[in-house]
Computed example of a mutant assay.
Amino acid sequence: MKATTVQNTFDDITLWNKMREGDEKSFSILFKRYYDDLVSYGNSLSPDKEKVQDCVQDVFIDVWNYKEKVQSAVVVKAYLLSSVRKRIARLYQRDHIFRKSTSIDAVSFHMEFSVEHELIDDDYATKQKVLHLNNLLNNLPARQKEALYLRYHQGLAVEQIAEMLDINYQSASNLVYRALITLRKEWKGALSLITLLSSGSF
C-alpha cells in the first residue's frame, strides 16, 4: 500500500489519540499531513521562513513531548494552526523585547491571495473581473483576510477561528461576514464567490 493511501486511512482524531498513547507512526502521519499547511500559514505571519519552519517543528516537538497531557477532544488542524500562531506571536515578543510588547492579536496576516485562472472561462472581461476581485481581497484588512483564509482555505469553523484569533464568536463571524459583503458587491460571475475562495492559491 502506498504511503499516501496509508496517510489517508485514519481520520485526524484517531491518529491524534494513537499519538497520545505513544504511537510514533500516527505522529509521523500527522506531521506529514499538516507540515506544509502549517509552514504556509506561518509564512503569512512572519517573513522569516527559517524561523517559521523552526516554529512549526517546535510545535510538533511539544505535541510529542507533552502527548500525555494534550486534550483528546480537539480539532487537530485547528489546534496545530493555533499553536503555530501562538508560537510566532511569542517569537515577535522575543524579537521586540526592547519595544512595546507584541500580543497574539497584533500578529499581522500578509499572505497574498490569487484565484486560479484555470477556474475561469476564456472570456477576457470575466478574467479582468477576477483580477479585480483578487485586488479587492488582498486589500481587505488583515484580520478579515486571515478569517477568510482560515474559513475557506483551511476549512475551520467560526468557533475555531474565534479561538485562534482570541476573539469572541460574534467578532469572528463579523470578520467573515464583512469581508464577504465587500467582495460580493464586486463579484457577479457565474462561479460562486465561495467556490473561488475555497479554490484560491495562497
Rank of each mutant, 00 (worst) to 15 (best):
I13D: 07
Q53T: 10
R99P: 00
S46V: 03
N8L: 13
N17Q: 12
V115L: 09
P47L: 11
V115N: 03
S114N: 15
Q93C: 02
D95F: 03
Y66V: 01
H96T: 10
I104E: 14
D37H: 06
K49G: 01
I88P: 05
D62W: 05
I13E: 05
A73V: 05
Y41I: 06
Q71N: 12
L15R: 02
E68N: 06
D37M: 02
F31N: 08
R90D: 09
Q53A: 09
N17F: 03
I61L: 12
K77S: 02
L80Y: 01
L45A: 06
S103V: 11
K32A: 13
S46K: 00
R20S: 07
F98G: 10
K69D: 14
Q71T: 04
K51C: 05
R90M: 08
S44D: 11
T9I: 14
I29R: 11
R99M: 11
A73P: 00
V52H: 05
K69S: 13
R85S: 01
V84A: 09
R87V: 06
K25H: 07
S83T: 02
L45G: 04
A89L: 08
N8W: 01
K86P: 00
S40F: 03
D23Q: 08
K86I: 07
V70E: 03
V74Q: 09
V56A: 01
S103W: 07
F109K: 11
L80N: 01
D12K: 10
S44G: 15
V76H: 11
S82L: 03
A89R: 00
G22T: 04
G22R: 01
R90E: 05
D95T: 13
V39N: 10
N8Q: 15
V84D: 10
R87Q: 14
G22A: 04
Y41M: 12
S46M: 12
V59R: 02
L81F: 02
D105P: 00
A73M: 02
S82W: 08
V63E: 12
D23R: 07
H110R: 15
I104P: 04
I104W: 08
A73C: 00
S114W: 00
V115T: 11
F98Q: 13
I61T: 13
M19G: 04
K25A: 11
Y92W: 07
K69W: 02
F27P: 07
V115P: 10
E21S: 12
R33C: 01
S72A: 13
D105K: 14
S44L: 06
D23P: 00
G22Y: 01
D54F: 12
V63D: 05
V107W: 11
N8T: 11
K25C: 01
L15F: 02
T102L: 13
T102M: 12
A73D: 15
S26L: 02
S103C: 06
K86G: 14
T102H: 09
V74A: 04
N43Y: 04
V59P: 04
H110E: 07
K32S: 14
K25F: 05
D37K: 07
F27D: 02
V63C: 14
K86A: 14
V107G: 10
